[in-house]
Write a protein that binds this DNA or RNA. Structure first.
Lengths: 150, 150
DNA sequence: TCAATTTATTTGTAAATGCAAATAATTACA
DNA sequence: TGTAATTATTTGCATTTACAAATAAATTGA
């Protein structure tokens, strides 16, 4: 076990990449990709999100997301609407076809959760999730300090 | 906190992506990218690795790695050598310039480790790393079963 | 109120990515 | 020993990605 095995970002990337690659292969026959799943999952959690919100939630860069959504719109999985409250913003909505695809992807996603956590006690799994949320939050410290608003 | 916050692959990707993005920005002024760092770190751990080994270690797909290494070779950070023992294989070696860049990146990487784990007890951090190694290993179960050799 | 600034999204463009096919060398075994 | 199968890497090519600039709308404050 070399130094890399003790380096957290390495372990994080490695585990994430492996799950991502396997999941991608698995959903390809359904005409889906990992990125479309991320968008659909975010809309399943809350439909009508803005592009910027989706970008933050899915960790997909906004300009990439724009073109990804273009493709999903062409496939009629989602629909863009101009936000009524703020005409700069666009909200994204799952269509019936999008929801059907989501329903097919959900059990696959659940299986990945189960397989990856195989052998974990419930409290170990929960501790891991708590730790991952802390990691994420800790990165605030390095974020480009944005001008305070308000 | 919606369903996504309880979904492990989501938490994993989100934390990994955030660290990756911040690290990328930070090393850009040094003429480095996250991917070149991954290659250099793998060679720092063990020089003279094969392309396939590097691909597995860095989670960079082999054909992508080939072209990444092309670029690093042009920048004289690494050098390819035909493996003496097996002429199909290519081994990669850090050059003096590559090692100098590695030395400049190491403290940044250490800082990312420290910042991301801020507030973690030593044993919590270790438990997290153990868990991430288990996750990775658990994915064996879903791997395309390759024909047994031997 | 209106000009300047900020915010949300899209577009331009070059680089990175990944699958599949091609190339090259080794190994297995008839 | 020589031919088929396997393994390691690279190349072809279409897609994805991300930075920067452009566009469009809202907000701020003189």
């Amino acid at each position: 076990m070399g130094p890399l095995d003790g380096y957290l970002p390495y372990l994080l990337n490695r585990a994430g990449a492996r799950i991502a690659t396997a999941f991608s292969e698995e959903v390809r026959p359904l005409g889906a990709t990992l990125q479309t799943w991320r968008v659909l999952a975010a809309l399943h959690e809350r439909d009508g999100r803005r592009m910027g919100d989706l970008s933050e939630t899915t960790s997909i860069e906004v300009s990439t997301l724009t073109r990804l959504v273009d493709g999903m719109e062409k496939k009629a999985l989602v629909a863009r609407r101009r936000d009524a409250a703020d005409a700069r913003a666009v909200t994204l909505h799952a269509t019936p076809a999008g929801r059907r695809l989501t329903q097919r992807l959900l059990p696959i996603a659940e299986r990945y959760e189960a397989v990856s956590l195989r052998g974990f006690e419930a409290r170990e799994a929960e501790a891991l999730k708590v730790a991952l949320r802390r990691l994420y939050a800790n990165m605030d410290a390095l974020e480009k300090p944005r001008r305070q608003r308000g």
